[in-house]
């Protein structure tokens, strides 16, 4: 059983003079994430949903140790990211547009490089490469420089690199970004597959179709706070996810005035 637990995560960014004027505020800092807590377990897919600027990206950056929270903590199986950032990094896969590949390398070279950084043995690496390259049909462009690949091709390679070490925790931000329907379906199956293998998955996307098909539970984030966190079934309550999302959104907008 694997558990990822976010505890009261807070992150703010300094505001420039210009931004302050635009936002009509006197605050020196913009609170991007204002105390977010949730728990994701193995064998389920946890969705993080929310409108633009809600704080999804910021939250995921904190989960992945890319940035440090101002306060709060994240626990991977009860190990804090503050204590063991390096060893924890070997336990999760992180896929987002923040992470780019080396334009001058090929998919093959990228794979070998990261296989080295993740300390895979030669046999492990070869086996994993074959498995993933076959699965996502990368072989035909595996020796082409990344800079010559299409957006979807890059996304496939990025996804492969992110799970190179077959970790227990998977954090995906818009995993089907730029993918055609065939590839998107492959990714969806891959996600469900990993869930069935007992991995703990967190997915953030604006594609509700994907959410409905793979997520078991989801949190709605608005303005840096969780406004709903429940099973998908309860959240939808017989409606479409889009309708319930809209309802929660307007209800909270009214509350804030």
């Amino acid at each position: 059983m694997h558990i990822l637990r976010a505890e009261n995560l807070v992150k703010s960014f300094p505001l420039s003079e210009k931004q302050r004027k635009a936002l009509d505020t006197k605050d020196k800092r913009k609170v991007a994430v204002g105390g977010i807590s949730f728990e994701a377990k193995s064998g389920e897919v946890f969705g993080i949903l929310g409108p633009n600027g809600a704080g999804k990206t910021t939250t995921m950056r904190m989960l992945s140790t890319l940035i440090k929270p101002d306060s709060g903590d994240v626990f991977y199986d009860d190990r804090s990211i503050k204590d063991h950032p390096e060893s924890i990094r070997s336990e999760f896969a992180f896929l987002t547009t923040d992470l780019k590949l080396d334009e001058k390398s090929t998919a093959n070279e990228m794979f070998d490089f990261f296989a080295g950084l993740y300390h895979l043995t030669k046999e492990q690496a070869e086996q994993r490469k074959k498995e993933l390259f076959d699965r996502f049909a990368v072989n035909s462009f595996a020796d082409t420089k990344i800079k010559k690949l299409s957006q979807g091709m890059r996304q496939k390679v990025s996804l492969i690199i992110s799970v190179i070490h077959d970790p227990n925790f998977i954090i995906f931000y818009e995993p089907t970004n730029g993918l055609d329907i065939i590839a998107a379906r492959e990714v969806r199956d891959f996600i469900i597959n990993m869930k069935n293998e007992g991995k703990c998955l967190i997915i953030s996307t604006h594609l509700f179709d994907l959410v409905e098909k793979v997520c078991d539970r989801a949190a709605f984030i608005m303005d840096g706070k969780i406004v709903a966190n429940d099973t998908l079934e309860n959240l939808m309550n017989g409606r479409s996810l889009e309708d319930s999302f809209y309802e929660i959104y307007t209800a909270n907008m009214e509350k804030e005035g």
Binding site: R89, L99, K100, L101, E103, F114, L117, Y118
Partner: peptide, 12 residues
């Protein structure tokens, strides 16, 4: 180019 980020989340 954002490639450093990818290295930064590796266990190195």
């Amino acid at each position: 180019r954002g490639f450093l980020n990818t290295m930064l989340i590796s266990p190195v």
